[in-house]
Amino acid sequence: MSDQALKRLNKYISDTGLCSRREADKLIEQNRVTINDQQPELGSKVGPDDSVKVDGKIIGAVANDKSDRVYIVYNKPIGITCTTERHVKGNIIDAIKHKNRIFPVGRLDKPSEGLIILTSDGDIVNKILRAENAHDKEYEVTVNQPISDRFIKRMERGVPILGTVTKPCTARATGRNTFTIILTQGLNRQIRRMCEFLGYEVTKLKRTRIMHLELDRLKPGQWRNLTDAELKKLHQSVKSSTKTSIKNIDRTNTQQGNRDKS
């Protein structure tokens, strides 16, 4: 069998949505994984005819066309933490109660609300999260004092936070204390930090859109599957995007699960 027909064992396991590659390596080291009822080594490869078991239970390979993968949009309420760590009270996985193992794409901090994508497709998670891919995200923001023209212009031009200057963005006042902003970046608690630098405090933050995906009529706490049209456009949008390793997903969610990528 050619190497092209083989897949590394940790990727085979992670692609099923069972765990990340890093976690799969731990399962292998703990002798909890078998290939054809034999104990494998780290770095082992499997083919389409091999039987892979974790804790004695067979796990099937994912479909090549990704037809068996999950893609949903969720209207995250205030108080829910975007982490896959089940011991964290109010974690997003327990809140959704999906039968498949899914990952949030990025995060919204606990006091924030709005649209977040969750999926079992690790490749697309990484493509969307890469800041250089310039996938825009739109937010509705309320602050603690009247918004000035200077404030809007400064937000659009860029603000020094976290040792850098934020990328130019689009912002528009929508009321005395409210504005919308469209970002292509994902710095830690970016909107809150930008406002704070300019002397404002965010009192409400809601994400309403990621690329072409919108909340529509979803109420806080509700989720829905992507439509076929939405999914097709999503794959087209990230087709040329650079990927990073899936092993970063769980580590990021664990370390920064309650931080705001907005």
Rank of each mutant, 00 (worst) to 15 (best):
D3R: 14
Q4Y: 15
Y12P: 00
Y12T: 01
S14W: 03
T16M: 04
T16W: 01
T16R: 01
G17R: 00
L18W: 02
E23V: 13
E23P: 07
A24N: 04
A24V: 06
D25P: 08
K26N: 13
L27R: 08
E29D: 15
E29Y: 05
N31R: 15
R32V: 06
R32L: 14
R32S: 13
D37N: 15
Q39S: 14
P40S: 05
S44I: 00
S44W: 00
V46T: 07
G47C: 04
G47M: 03
D49M: 14
G60L: 12
A61I: 08
D65V: 11
K66E: 10
K66P: 00
R69Y: 07
V70S: 10
V70G: 08
Y71W: 07
I72S: 00
I72K: 02
I72Q: 00
V73F: 08
Y74H: 01
T83E: 04
E85I: 08
I92A: 04
I93P: 01
D94L: 08
A95I: 06
I96P: 03
I96H: 05
K97I: 00
N100F: 11
N100H: 13
N100K: 14
R101M: 05
V105N: 04
V105A: 05
G106I: 07
G106H: 06
R107E: 11
T119W: 08
G122F: 01
I124R: 02
E132H: 10
A134N: 14
H135S: 08
K137Y: 06
V143N: 03
I147V: 15
S148E: 11
D149G: 09
D149L: 11
F151G: 01
F151L: 15
I152T: 04
I152L: 09
G158D: 09
V159S: 05
V159T: 05
I161F: 10
L162R: 10
G163H: 07
T164C: 12
V165A: 08
T166C: 10
C169Y: 01
A171H: 00
R172Q: 14
R172A: 13
R176L: 15
N177L: 12
N177P: 04
T178H: 14
I182S: 15
T184E: 14
T184Q: 14
Q185W: 06
L187F: 05
L187I: 02
L187T: 00
R189A: 12
I191N: 01
R193Y: 09
M194T: 02
M194D: 02
C195D: 05
L198M: 12
L198F: 10
R209P: 09
R209N: 13
L213E: 04
L213H: 05
K219E: 15
P220G: 07
G221I: 12
W223R: 02
N225Q: 14
T227Q: 08
E230C: 06
H235G: 03
Q236F: 08
Q236P: 05
S237R: 12
K239M: 11
K239E: 15
K239L: 13
S240W: 09
T242D: 10
K243T: 15
T244V: 09
T244Y: 09
S245F: 09
I246N: 15
K247Y: 11
R251D: 10
T252P: 00
T252N: 14
T252Y: 13
N253E: 08
N258H: 11
K261E: 11
K261P: 01
